[in-house]
């Protein structure tokens, strides 16, 4: 349970609005990500939106709450997983003969499950971009100036 009266973070107005909207922002990011091959969007946009939703929690509630939800270790693991998944999809293209071959069934056009490996690649790019940008922001926030001696 999130304590609204915690002294960290911003005022109660910002906290309440964040509580009410953060889930929908996350949902919108996932929608943009999963429909990248039918409508505008894709892995880059979805990844940045989802990273921004966690940054939103961090700005409103302070760093402890956000790091409870997604800490640095998990972000590093997700980022590496994204890179690994992308290169794995590329190597699996050798089933069709060449690197980065779209070897899966293309499916029916304009459906959610279509376009072969593009959906999987989008998810890999999302993991990479989203976790990477969140990690960068966490590093910038946690860095405190020690002062010159």
């Amino acid at each position: 349970m999130i304590n609204n009266r915690d002294s960290q973070g911003m005022s109660v107005i910002v906290k309440t609005i964040t509580r009410l909207t953060i889930g929908l922002i996350l949902l919108y990011g996932v929608y943009i990500l999963l429909h990248g091959h039918i409508t505008p969007g894709g892995g880059f946009a979805g990844g940045v939106i989802i990273a921004l939703s966690f940054i939103h929690i961090m700005l409103a509630f302070g760093k402890n709450v956000a790091l409870e939800k997604l800490n640095q270790t998990w972000s590093k693991i997700f980022e590496s997983t994204g890179a690994l998944l992308f290169i794995t999809i590329a190597f699996l293209g050798f089933f069709g003969g060449v690197f980065f071959n779209n070897f899966l069934d293309k499916g029916e056009h304009f459906e959610l499950f279509s376009a072969g490996t593009i959906l999987l690649s989008n998810i890999a790019i999302f993991l990479k971009v989203g976790a990477g940008l969140f990690l960068l922001f966490v590093a910038l926030v946690l860095f405190k100036i020690g002062g010159r001696k």
Partner: peptide, 28 residues
């Protein structure tokens, strides 16, 4: 060839996926 209605996505993730691989490397 790709089955994706969004042509930009089909270019960055299928025809020219090497670009995206390089981009992922630069980002990393």
């Amino acid at each position: 060839e790709t089955g994706a209605a969004n042509l930009v996505t089909s270019v960055i993730l299928d025809f020219r996926a090497f670009d995206t691989l390089g981009e992922a490397t630069v980002l990393f």
